[in-house]
Design a protein around this nucleic acid. Structure first.
Lengths: 199, 199
DNA sequence: GTCTATACGAAGATAGAC
DNA sequence: GTCTATCTTCGTATAGAC
């Protein structure tokens, strides 16, 4: 195992994925963005291909079917969650603050890649994609465990987790103007931490 | 205005809407249930018609287009929210407890009708239905105002609202086995109330 | 690896019979 | 009010050229 895995310009599908990233990644990014911005219904193979700047045939060379596209997105989510939990465990500001702040749109590259994957998968989860739901449930379980492992009271941990879900719910459904470093976020974080400390 | 408005067997589309309710309501119920259980993609006119036990032509007599169907669902939501806020304001257990407990699947008829409408609309809101998003945002604003009007500290109110959103997020996305009177709900309510009281 | 062309079914909507 | 065609467009997927 050498130390490559260079990741290209990964995580920055800034301009509708007109990036120089390899086709496969560009397609996955386009799929993600379509799900986030326009919902499952709009994320058709045609639309994905157009946004990734390949033909439908080109897309289907990389992902043999729509199902394959979904599975790859799920795989991306799982990888990002694993990495995130490690950062969370190591966070100097503490697990709770890290969790709350990263529950809304971030400008940090690694973090926002995760958020995009989550919101995109949440869109798919509303349909009857059992495996997508399972992945999200498993992610939530991991978060909850990480919070309680850090010594947080179980009920408080549950509330923290729900606040995070609430933030995702809002961001998966249109504009939460909020940024992770806004004043209202600071107040929210302070209040939650105060609550957790008192239990 | 006489005191009819009998509502038929409204609010109980228990068995896939095989009810005796008038066709229009049966169709709307079927649309709602399809959105909830199988997502936006599955809620096609064909599927709605089949579940409401009318033909597609019959459906389109009552609702001239899919858009009309959506608008009627939105109207139903707005009506139910208005009624709910009145109940919330008058709730003997207090605004906060009422809000938290009614944020998950209820067996109460009036309450569950609202929940169904919300979850169904949340599914639609992921697409680019601007008006659906607006309706949900307005509903959230009303709730938040009701909580703060009851004397709750603004930051605490925001946390309460987020916990509610989190509960909806989970229930809009698959099984939260939770019931409004389970032990874990009692603990959750107690903890939230304790937090609110201390601010 | 990427494209064009095409098959085929599904989804929304219309027309008109009963 | 409700039904059965029928039309059209869209979405997924395949075949085969470059």
């Amino acid at each position: 195992m050498t130390a490559q895995c260079a990741e290209y310009d990964e995580g920055v599908p800034s301009r509708s994925s007109t990036s120089t990233a390899p086709t496969r990644e560009r397609i996955l990014d386009a799929f993600e963005l379509l799900l986030i911005n326009d919902g499952e219904r709009a994320a058709t193979l045609d639309a994905v291909a157009a946004n990734a700047q390949v033909s439908k045939g080109g897309l289907l060379y990389h992902f043999a079917s729509k199902e394959a596209l979904i599975q790859s997105l799920l795989q991306r989510l799982r990888t990002l969650v694993t990495e995130d939990v490690e950062r969370m465990r190591a966070a100097p500001e503490g697990v709770v603050e890290y969790f709350i702040r990263t529950s809304i749109a971030s400008t940090d590259t690694a973090q926002s890649a995760l958020e995009r994957a989550i919101v995109a998968c949440a869109c798919l989860a509303q349909g009857s994609h059992t495996d997508v739901r399972d992945a999200i449930r498993s992610m939530q379980a991991t978060w909850l465990a990480t919070i309680t492992d850090a010594g947080t009271d179980p009920v408080a941990a549950r509330i923290v987790a729900l606040v995070g879900d609430g933030l995702y719910f809002n961001s998966s459904m249109g504009l939460t103007d909020e940024t992770p470093r806004s004043q209202s976020m600071d107040e929210l974080v302070a209040a939650v931490k105060q609550f957790v400390a008192k239990r």
